[in-house]
Simulated assay, not measured.
Amino acid sequence: MESDVKDEAADICVAAAEKYKDNLEKAAQVIKDALDKKFGGRWHVVIGTDFAHRITHEV
């Protein structure tokens, strides 16, 4: 992803998350619609408060 696209996508995400901080489902839908319209294609948006990940590796 190019730097200018990344910055614009981040701005869209921050604005929606701040505007709909009490309704994460609405924030995700607004972000998805904005990214689909602005950059084309099909974007997937996952937003929430309790996400984690773990990566392991064995030789």
Rank of each mutant, 00 (worst) to 15 (best):
M1E: 04
E2D: 12
E2K: 06
S3C: 11
S3R: 09
V5C: 05
K6S: 01
K6N: 02
K6G: 00
D7Q: 08
D7E: 08
I12M: 11
C13T: 12
V14A: 15
V14Q: 15
E18R: 13
E18P: 01
K19D: 07
K19Y: 04
Y20G: 03
Y20D: 03
K21I: 00
D22R: 12
L24F: 03
L24H: 03
E25D: 11
K26F: 03
A27T: 03
A27D: 06
A28T: 02
Q29L: 09
V30I: 05
V30H: 04
V30N: 09
V30C: 09
I31K: 09
I31C: 12
K32F: 13
K32D: 13
D33H: 03
A34R: 09
A34H: 04
A34L: 10
L35D: 00
L35Y: 09
L35K: 10
D36R: 04
D36A: 11
K37C: 06
K37T: 14
F39E: 02
F39W: 01
G40K: 13
G40E: 07
G40A: 08
G41Q: 00
W43L: 04
H44E: 01
H44K: 03
V45H: 03
V45T: 04
V45K: 03
V46W: 09
V46G: 12
I47D: 05
I47P: 01
T49E: 14
D50V: 02
F51D: 05
F51W: 15
A52G: 10
A52Q: 11
A52S: 13
H53M: 10
H53L: 12
R54G: 09
R54E: 11
R54H: 09
I55N: 14
T56W: 06
T56R: 04
T56K: 07
H57D: 10
H57Y: 07
V59K: 15
